[in-house]
Design a binder for these strands. Structure first.
Lengths: 221, 221
DNA sequence: CGTACTTTTGAATCGCATCAAATCTGGTGG
DNA sequence: CCACCAGATTTGATGCGATTCAAAAGTACG
């Protein structure tokens, strides 16, 4: 498969300098495969062209916690700065992978200013995204988390889910049952419009129709 | 005040190139002061030499959410990559501040390779730290969050709190009452040793003393 | 010495997690 | 094409733990 194909999906790949491109391996990754495990030395940086890769950790009782979910874009960018991985990297959906050798990647950052700036921009974006997720997780209330998610991850107050609702629930730090119930309730209250995997926020215009709760909080039957 | 003084507290400042040093303003920041507000254009990068600065946001009902808390080190590093601030920056404890003009900072990154590498290392560290916090917040159980905090933020399973417990509670996504009770309970169970602001984890050696719960989970009276 | 804030404990309530079970879905192989 | 299976979706019932409201005691600071 050609770089040109990938660039269409991931515009930032356009900035990868020729030297690094030649050193990059491009391969298929099958669902279930482990890219790396906790403690493994960092040898490559991975970019998910298609499919999905997750950064996961397991707590004491074996519960899986998803730390990052990448569908297009880098996975474990921060591993560039450390010797060994802090999490497991598992392929959750079959797709194509770009494997950048660590040394070549570092060299490219050193030599190529535009590429470097794109990279620093990606890191900064990741930081902001993570801060938003922390903010979301510190909200106590299922409805508030759902709405916060749509507001911060969506475009024009609407999202198209690219994962199952069950997986979304765990990203929101909720049990899947509560997420289902919350979506239903918000839908019935007219605060949310749900068409399959398309979910959008309905902003109340605050004029007519006085039979509504003040805002997305403390909804009761 | 002199750079040499700051470098003792923040070793990475040693790598700030001379050109950038000359352009940097150094001033006192008084508790309560707002460094910037949501939407303000980014003009400087701030480094907290002493005192404390917080990155905060407010939800719909005015509840304060702390997104970052910096005591020594940069605050809002990710703002380097965006036009405007996404949060408010408030001084929570009086101290000294280094204000790097944005343009000069960018230029230094461009020209000075060692400085740039230190900076990218800081960004990567921030990403890992934020991932750890997300992991922590997605644990459901006060005791588990406390223990996770000590394990990931502490040194040798021990931390010295540099903030009030009330503030810690909000960082953990808990009400302060629950944190107090949880600490007390864990202390009584011998899982935690608490000396004022010094809190350390007691690892059970799993040999003698059979009167203990399996691990840090599901503690009951 | 007084004020503001943190720390601490108590009691009541609410919402989420959990267990259970039924239905629906997409995909596989016969 | 259909039977079948695994996983996702949906709904119900229950208990626990966190939030919340309340109030008292401790502590820092001017």
């Amino acid at each position: 498969m050609e770089w040109q194909t990938f660039i269409e999906h991931q515009p930032f790949l356009e900035h990868v300098p020729p030297g690094l491109r030649k050193a990059t391996e491009c391969r298929k990754a099958v669902a279930g495969e482990m890219l790396f495990r906790v403690g493994n030395p960092v040898r490559s940086l991975f970019c998910v062209a298609t499919g999905e890769v997750q950064l996961v950790r397991h707590d004491l009782r074996g519960t899986k916690i998803i730390l990052q979910r990448s569908r297009g874009g880098f996975i474990a960018e921060a591993s560039l700065g450390s010797k060994a991985y802090h999490c497991d990297g598992v392929v959750s959906e079959t797709g194509m992978l770009l494997c950048f050798p660590l040394a070549a990647f570092r060299a490219a950052l050193e030599e190529d200013a535009p590429f470097r700036n794109v990279w620093m921009g990606l890191l900064a974006r990741e930081v902001r995204k993570l801060r938003a997720q922390c903010e979301r997780l510190s909200l106590n209330g299922a409805a508030e988390r759902v709405i916060h998610y749509i507001e911060s991850e969506g475009i024009h107050d609407a999202i198209t889910l690219n994962q199952s609702r069950k997986a979304w629930a765990s990203e929101l730090g909720l049990s899947h049952e509560v997420l289902y119930r919350t979506l239903k309730r918000l839908g019935e209250q007219g605060l949310l419009r749900i068409d399959g995997s398309r979910i959008s926020l309905v902003r109340e215009s605050n004029d007519g129709d006085g039979a509504r709760e003040p805002t997305a909080s403390k909804q009761r039957t």
